[in-house]
Simulated assay, not measured.
Amino acid sequence: MAQVLAASAVTAALLAVPSAATADPGAPVVVAANALPVVIANLQAWVMGILAAIATLFLVLGGLFRATAGGDPAQVDKANGYFKNALTGYGLAVLAPILLEVVKGIVGG
């Protein structure tokens, strides 16, 4: 208990004492942002990766439902729906670069 109180007292004392700022006001400010083409390229990679991952998940689930359907038409229809969603996801992943080029043209990058 005494150790906790001592540590708390030291922490409170250190926080109570103001410290001087060491920033140089004359130095130029450097912003760490990327240029617009770099941001769009990074966005393109992320979008394509996420869409491909989700489409792969739907493809695996569709295959799982198809394999375990056992002739049940409802399960087969459910599996076919997952296959259609996977196809849509892969199509969007392929079209992502084109859509991002349109966005780049609109934004002016």
Score class of each variant (00 low, 15 high):
Ala96Ser: 08
Ala21Arg: 00
Ala27Val: 06
Ala32Ser: 14
Leu36Met: 13
Thr56Tyr: 04
Ala7Glu: 08
Gly81Pro: 04
Val4Leu: 15
Pro18Tyr: 09
Leu36Gly: 04
Ala16Lys: 09
Leu64Asp: 03
Ala7Ser: 02
Leu57Glu: 11
Leu15Asp: 07
Phe58Ile: 06
Ala27Phe: 03
Ala93Ile: 07
Ala2Ser: 07
Pro73Lys: 07
Ala2Phe: 01
Val47Met: 13
Pro37Met: 04
Ala7Tyr: 01
Val94Glu: 03
Ala93Thr: 10
Glu101Leu: 14
Asp72Tyr: 01
Thr22Trp: 00
Ala9Tyr: 02
Asp72Ile: 11
Ala6Asn: 03
Pro37Gln: 05
Leu57Gln: 13
Leu57Asp: 10
Val30Gly: 07
Leu99Arg: 02
Asp24Gln: 00
Ala6Ile: 01
Leu36Tyr: 02
Val94Arg: 05
Gly49Tyr: 01
Val94His: 03
Thr68Gly: 07
Leu43Cys: 04
Gly81Asn: 14
Leu36Val: 15
Ala35His: 04
Met1Ala: 06
Ala74Lys: 13
Leu92Arg: 09
Ala2Leu: 06
Val4Trp: 06
Phe65Ile: 08
Tyr82Ser: 08
Gly109Trp: 08
Ser19Glu: 08
Ile50Cys: 04
Tyr82Arg: 07
Val94Tyr: 05
Thr11His: 04
Asp77Ile: 14
Ala27Ile: 09
Ile98Arg: 04
Pro28Cys: 05
Ala32Gly: 14
Gly105Ser: 06
Ala33Lys: 06
Val17Lys: 15
Ala33Cys: 10
Ala96Gly: 01
Gly70Pro: 07
Lys104Gln: 12
Ala16Cys: 06
Ala41Gly: 08
Leu51Arg: 14
Gly108Asn: 10
Gly81Tyr: 09
Pro97Gly: 05
Ala93Phe: 00
Asp24Thr: 08
Phe83Tyr: 13
Ala55Leu: 10
Trp46Ile: 15
Asp77Tyr: 11
Leu15Ala: 12
Val31Glu: 14
Ala7Pro: 00
Leu61Met: 15
Ser8Tyr: 07
Ile50Thr: 14
Trp46Gln: 15
Ala79Lys: 01
Gly62Leu: 12
Gly71Trp: 10
Val60Asn: 07
Asn34Asp: 15
Gly108Lys: 12
Ala41Leu: 05
Ala21Phe: 01
Pro73Val: 11
Lys104Thr: 03
Val17Trp: 11
Phe83Glu: 06
Leu100Phe: 10
Val30Asn: 12
Pro97Cys: 03
Asn80Tyr: 02
Ile40Val: 14
Phe58Ala: 10
Leu15Tyr: 07
Thr88Arg: 13
Ala20Thr: 03
Ala23Gly: 02
Ala23Pro: 00
Ala13Gln: 08
Thr22Leu: 09
Gly109Ile: 10
Ala93His: 05
Phe83Arg: 10
Thr68Lys: 13
